[in-house]
Design a binder for these strands. Structure first.
Length: 625
DNA sequence: CTAGGGTTAG
């Protein structure tokens, strides 16, 4: 009897206290102070107060936000003990928490074990968004069909869960089907769903469909602009990004960090340093200076635009460096041939207990391959799977083939290809083909070429590369065969070009180009340079190199024009961005290297091959000749 | 006093 009274009193006192605890918890959770909210929850338990159906949603939300699955499971136990599981609010939060902690099977179990879930739209919505989060396309679709069969009400939030599921390449059919559902339910005019559909289209690569939705949207919000800008950015349409960003500013829409991330990433692709600098200033004006996403994007932008010092400063100044920050700076050093620094940084990252992921490994492998650190690269490649359980993807294999191939270890490169589990892609055979060109292995080049054009039949760069293998072997018949092949397939080599950014403008050159207003000056300068270079390096050349030089002096490569232009118009280290089908040729590389020795000027050469979207003519100030 | 949702970096 005494016990009963004691318990009764305790319950009495705690029930009166509960609302206070709950209020505190709610306030913290709403202010995104999730860790604090969770410690308040623990304090509450210690003080003897009982959590109730009003407590759990906030505790679960906090748990989901900071992704603490263990705490989440404990909460689940408390919910069962207090008998709150049947509360719809609690149940939904619980499902959502498991989804956000990537414990989707636990979420499903909660859903299945409580028959009333199947009557509640909110429970379905929580689970559906969980499938979306974990990209379980099929499960999401099945769940949606089940809702329709059972006649569960479908609302806007349901579609917000379902639409992003379709945002994977190759799922356009499904995406359009879901889009038509939105129209059918009259939900497509909802601004959130409109944004979601837009994102879905750009993620499937249907950028034009996305743009159509964007244009048709009468009430574009910040998120709409961001979705379109980042959609362009993710599809490599950097010039469209800058154009749209300008339009956005002219309409007086204020950017947020997400906008600027997309813009910076496009500046990085284009080498548009001056626009990038403007964005950096804007970032500071708006007080986004310490946003980690933006700082990572800035590191990448400066690194790709050749200013490694600045990139390093930003990196060093970041109080918390994520694996993305490390990858950006490692990639930056790798890109500029400073493989040793890249490797050191990678090791330092591991020492500071940041776990590398696939992309981080890719950056260090590529750094090794460019700097000729073959054995280091092989070592990392081994560690990647053995120690970190990361299965190498096709891109890692391409990098390794490049690494081995450049070092002349063609046999090993070939063996690696034969041993790999993933399906080889074009880049992989292309890397082998490139290596065959360097090391003059015609036989293996023929095999690599055969494979690469099966996968990328319209990539003219590979035809040219292969024909150069024959050129070097003096095989005229081979050259002719490749040319015929190109003609039959109606392939024309895209003209390569190079550009230099100067005074807010992009100055673009094609080979033999005479369109630039300063053409005469540029050619005069180039002539001067060619002579200087010949004098400097003429003595120690073998016949082969002499012949190449001769062939080279026949053509005015776009790189050379860019170098001459930059000497005439810019004062400091200049970045020359090269857009060719494959990569800068050896001769131009040599030319630039020698010129920089003669004139004591650094040139940063960046190959933007994969991002050439110049067809619409980007220029940072919209003037373009 | 309570649940489900849209746009970011390497």
């Amino acid at each position: 009897m005494a016990m009963k009274t004691k318990l009764y009193h305790k319950l009495q006192s705690t029930t009166t206290k509960n609302p206070q605890w709950n209020t505190l918890l709610r306030e913290l959770a709403n202010k995104s102070l999730f860790t604090n909210a969770l410690s308040v929850y623990l304090q509450m338990l210690r003080s003897g107060a009982f959590p109730n159906a009003f407590t759990f949603p906030f505790a679960l939300k906090s748990c989901a936000a900071v992704s603490l699955p263990t705490t989440g499971k404990q909460l689940h136990c408390h919910i069962i003990k207090t008998g709150c599981l049947l509360e719809p609010f609690v149940q939904t939060s619980l499902i959502s928490m498991y989804c956000k902690c990537s414990l989707i099977d636990n979420a499903r179990k909660v859903f299945d074990e409580n028959p009333q879930s199947r009557k509640l739209t909110v429970c379905y919505n929580a689970l559906l968004s969980g499938y979306a989060l974990n990209s379980r396309v099929k499960d999401a679709v099945v769940l949606f069909c089940e809702m329709r069969e059972l006649g569960v009400e479908i609302n806007g939030v349901t579609m917000l869960g379902l639409v992003p599921v379709c945002g994977v390449p190759g799922n356009l059919g499904l995406g359009m089907c879901v889009h038509s559902f939105c129209v059918k339910f009259g939900l497509d005019m909802d601004s959130s769903i409109g944004n979601c559909l837009l994102t879905m289209y750009v993620k499937t690569g249907e950028i034009d469909c996305g743009r159509k939705l964007f244009n048709e949207n009468p009430r574009k919000g910040l998120i709409t602009w961001n979705a379109m800008i980042n959609g362009y950015a993710q599809n490599g349409l950097a010039n469209n990004v800058l154009e749209l960003y300008e339009e956005m500013e002219s309409k007086g829409v204020c950017p947020d960090p997400l906008t600027l991330v997309g813009v910076l990433s496009s500046c990085a692709h284009l080498g548009a340093l001056s626009v990038g600098r403007k964005v950096e200033r804007k970032m500071e004006d708006f007080g986004f200076g310490s946003n980690p996403f933006l700082n990572n994007a800035l590191i990448n932008m400066y690194a790709r635009c050749g200013n490694l010092t600045k990139a390093r400063d930003i990196f060093d100044g970041m109080p918390v460096k994520s694996v993305v920050s490390w990858t950006a700076i490692i990639g930056g050093y790798g890109m500029h041939g400073q493989g040793e620094v890249a490797v050191e940084l990678f090791d330092e990252m591991i020492r500071s207990r940041i776990r590398p992921d696939g992309t981080a490994f890719l950056s260090v492998l590529s750094a090794c391959s460019h700097a000729g650190l073959t054995n280091k690269g092989l070592n990392y490649f081994g560690v990647m799977e053995r120690k970190y359980g990361l299965r190498p993807g096709a891109e890692h294999y391409s990098c390794m083939v490049d690494l081995l191939g450049r070092a002349g270890r063609l046999k090993e490169a070939r063996e690696l290809i034969e041993s790999m589990q993933v399906k080889p892609d074009g880049a992989l055979w292309g890397a082998l083909l490139g290596a065959c060109k360097i090391h003059r292995n015609v036989e293996l080049a023929e095999l690599a070429f055969e494979r690469v054009i099966e996968l990328e039949p319209t990539n003219t760069g590979y035809y040219v590369l292969f024909s150069n293998v024959y050129t070097e072997a003096g095989n005229l018949e081979g050259i002719l065969r490749v040319r015929t092949m190109m003609r039959e397939r109606k392939l024309k080599k895209d003209p390569g070009c190079s550009y230099v950014e100067s005074k807010e403008r992009v100055h673009l050159f094609f080979a033999g180009d005479r369109n630039h207003p300063q053409t005469n000056e540029i050619y005069k300068k180039l002539d001067e340079l060619e002579n200087l270079v010949k004098d400097l390096d003429g003595s120690k050349k073998n016949d082969h190199e002499r012949r190449e030089e001769y062939l080279d002096s026949m053509g005015v490569h776009s790189e050379k024009l860019a170098v001459a232009f930059s000497l005439l118009n810019t004062k400091k280290e200049t970045e020359i961005v090269i857009i060719k089908n494959l990569r800068i040729c050896r001769d131009c590389h040599l030319f630039i290297k020698l010129v920089s020795k003669i004139v004591y000027r650094q040139f940063v050469v960046r190959d933007a091959t994969r991002f050439h979207h110049f067809k619409n003519g980007f220029c940072s100030c919209k003037e373009y000749w």
